[in-house]
Every structure is written in C-alpha cells, then in structure tokens.
C-alpha cells in the first residue's frame, strides 16, 4: 500500500483511469466497514460506490500525512452515519420484527450455555441497535464490533474520547433494555 501516494499523484496529474486501481486496492476494506451498517447487498454496493465517489471528489485534498486507507475509512464512516440518519427506524418497530428461531432460542437460554452463530448474533444486534441514535449506533459498531479503540473512534467520528465513552455506555444500556423487551415479546 506504500505506493498509494504515487498512484494518487498520477491520478491528480490526469490519469483518471487509474482510480479504478485505487478502488481495487481498497474495496474490501470499504465493504468490511460498511457491511456493519447495511446488510442488503445492493444497498451495500451503493454505499461503497458513494464512498469512492466522495473520495474521488476530495482526492486533491488528500495530503498524504495519514495513510490513504485511514482517510478512506473516515469517508466510509461518514457515509455510514449519513445512511443511518436517512434510514433511522423508530424503536417501536423493533418488536414488530420476526426473530429467527436460533436467535430467539439463544435469547431465552437463561443458563447461557448455547453458543450463537455470527449471523444470529448480527440479527439480534441489528434489532437491538434500532433503538439507538445514529451516533450511538456508529460508536457501538466501531468500538464493539470492529474492535477499534476509543482513540480511533474519536478520530474517525470527530467526537471527544469522553463523548465516545458516554455514548457507548448509554447505547449498551439501551440495547440491553431492548433485548429484554424482545425476550418478553417473543416468549
């Protein structure tokens, strides 16, 4: 990835077609970030495309002080939060959703002896996160699912470390309440 700078310099010098090479190098990273916020493949594709189009428009403002991958990740995170704001669902819609059999079973397993598959966990988390504000949703995904540090989340979102911690604590509490509600509703 060290030659991203050279590639970008060529693109800015007029080799517009070489942007596709930049896309090929970083598309997996962008999909990896965005699929935490959108599961529908077609909409995920649109969001990834929006990320690269924004990167294209702003490419002459990339100063090379940080790696291109970090700069692009920041754009992807902003695309994700715009998406969350546009498609925010009301918390009361949560109980209306159908919960998968395995996810429901895990929820009712008081002993906690059952393991849960990634897709079932994701299903439950998606439901639990609908009660969160877009900013809380973003912080929880970055911290708990992507496993980023508070400092990284702070840099990516532009919020202070304290704000990130407060949002995360509030979000976890809301999610636990929502999951308790789901458990009661599905019993």
């Amino acid at each position: 990835m060290n030659d991203d700078g050279e590639l970008i310099a060529r693109i800015l010098d007029g080799a517009k077609d070489e942007f596709a090479e930049l896309v090929r190098r970083h598309q997996s990273q962008v999909f990896s970030i965005l699929h935490r916020y959108e599961r529908d493949p077609s909409r995920l594709d649109d969001l990834a495309q929006e990320t690269f189009l924004k990167a294209w428009k702003a490419l002459d403002r990339f100063d090379g002080r940080a790696p291109f991958a970090h700069w692009l990740a920041r754009i992807a995170v902003h695309v994700a939060i715009d998406h969350l704001r546009r498609h925010k669902r009301r918390p009361q819609e949560v109980a209306m959703d159908f919960l998968g059999f395995d996810a429901g079973d895990w929820l009712h397993d008081e002993a906690g002896s059952r393991a849960i598959e990634a897709s079932d966990a994701r299903e439950l988390l998606d439901l639990a996160m609908r009660g969160l504000s877009p900013a809380e949703h973003l912080v929880i995904v970055l911290l708990e699912i992507e496993g980023r540090s508070v400092k990284e989340v702070s840099a990516l979102t532009g919020s202070s470390g304290i704000a990130v911690r407060v949002r995360a604590a509030r979000a976890r509490a809301k999610m636990r309440r929502t999951l308790d509600g789901l458990k009661e509703a599905s019993s």
């Binding site: 598309q27 997996s28 699929h35 594709d45 849960i116 598959e117 990634a118 708990e144 976890r172 636990r176």
Partner: peptide, 16 residues
C-alpha cells in the same frame, strides 16, 4: 451482550 458482540465480530464481510 458481550457474547453477541464477540460473535458478530466473527462475521465475514461480503466481497464486492
């Protein structure tokens, strides 16, 4: 809740 996060972390990202 931490179990859910840990399991979700294992989910592979779809390829473009």
């Amino acid at each position: 809740l931490d179990q859910l996060f840990a399991a979700a972390r294992r989910e592979a990202a779809p390829e473009p």
